[in-house]
């Protein structure tokens, strides 16, 4: 037995030294992370988003001078993971965007996106040539050092001084900025609402995180309407419609006449609003084909508005 001890000791010593090292097993990391987020709709460079896997957020800082309206993300995820929805451009003002990543084993992690616009320190705007007069349905512009051609962050509020009611021009698709020199841009806020009453309106403009109240209120006035020319093909007893040209609206439409073959015929006004008028072609209107009628529109106290338009009137 005594002789066996050294061998037993040697055997266990060998086992001891050849036993594996003990390693601490890490907690399993679920492979459902966004590993990179880049904004790629900038020429020759990208913006990296900061990914926080504790708060599950992505923060993207967008300098104003890129004039971005939307950010186009390129997203990489863990191996085997997938985004649960397609990647689409995101408006820089959108604070509801989320991305869900599903691991190959089914666990889902949802990130929220924060787009933070890095803005210039201030905003100064002025009336074009000092003129603060405008009209309903007319384009309104301002001058200033805007530093960006993107209107994604533009917001405009008009407050009628007489009633304190507020109005917002429809900026979608209409608003724009146009650089005319290094430090001067034209800010076009699009058409002023056609249904605005004449009077004075305080103008508050928010752009790139800065707010300005214009030094003088907008003085809204009606100008003499202009009727858009168009061809009319109609039957006796039916109606035609006419619209005002941009910059004008129909106000106080009293009567409409058309002169055909040397004879003036009244077209009764069936209805009208600021942007349209419906006129009746009398039952006894002469049948004519592609004739040029000389139309006369009488609005309020303005001198008659004259417009020649092609008109075809077929029998009933």
């Amino acid at each position: 037995m005594k002789r066996l001890y050294p061998y037993v000791l040697m055997a266990f010593t060998a086992i001891h030294f050849f036993a594996c090292k003990k390693t601490v097993d890490y907690e399993h990391i679920v492979q459902n992370r966004i590993t990179s987020f880049t904004v790629v709709n900038i020429k020759d460079t990208v913006i990296y988003g900061a990914i926080d896997n504790i708060k599950n957020s992505i923060t993207v800082y967008v300098p104003y001078y890129y004039s971005l309206t939307v950010v186009e993300p390129k997203i990489a995820v863990d191996e085997g993971a997938t985004l649960t929805s397609p990647i689409q451009p995101v408006n820089v003002t959108d604070d509801k965007q989320t991305y869900s990543v599903k691991s190959s084993t089914g666990e889902v992690r949802t990130y929220s996106l924060k787009v933070i616009q890095q803005n210039p320190p201030g905003l100064s705007l002025s009336w074009p040539l000092g003129n603060n007069e405008g009209s309903p349905n007319a384009t309104q512009v301002f001058y200033g050092n805007l530093r960006s051609t993107s209107v994604a962050t533009l917001d405009v509020t008009l407050t009628q001084q007489a009633t304190n009611k507020t109005f917002k021009p429809d900026l979608i698709g209409a608003a724009s900025t146009l650089p005319v020199s290094l430090d001067t841009y034209i800010l076009n806020i699009g058409l002023l609402p056609a249904d605005l009453d004449s009077g004075y309106y305080q103008v508050d403009i928010s752009f790139l995180g800065n707010k300005v109240r214009m030094d003088k209120p907008l003085h809204l006035v009606y100008i003499k309407p202009v009727v858009l020319a168009k061809s009319h093909v109609v039957k006796q007893g039916e109606t035609i419609t006419v619209q005002p040209a941009q910059n004008t609206v129909f106000v106080d439409l009293k009567s409409v006449f058309v002169e055909v073959n040397g004879k003036s015929i009244e077209l009764p006004v069936v209805s009208y609003n600021r942007l349209s008028a419906t006129l009746k072609i009398p039952d006894n209107f002469p049948v004519i084909n592609d004739a040029y009628g000389r139309f006369e529109f009488n609005f309020g106290k303005w001198t008659p508005v004259l417009r020649s338009m092609s008109i075809t009137v077929n029998p009933k």
Partner: peptide, 24 residues
């Protein structure tokens, strides 16, 4: 001591997964 070492010695661990390059 040897017996304790023998029985308490760890099993061979599986290799810890290493993160691979992301795919897009």
């Amino acid at each position: 001591l040897m017996l304790i070492t023998f029985f308490a010695s760890c099993k061979k661990d599986k290799p810890v997964a290493t993160e691979k390059e992301p795919v897009t």
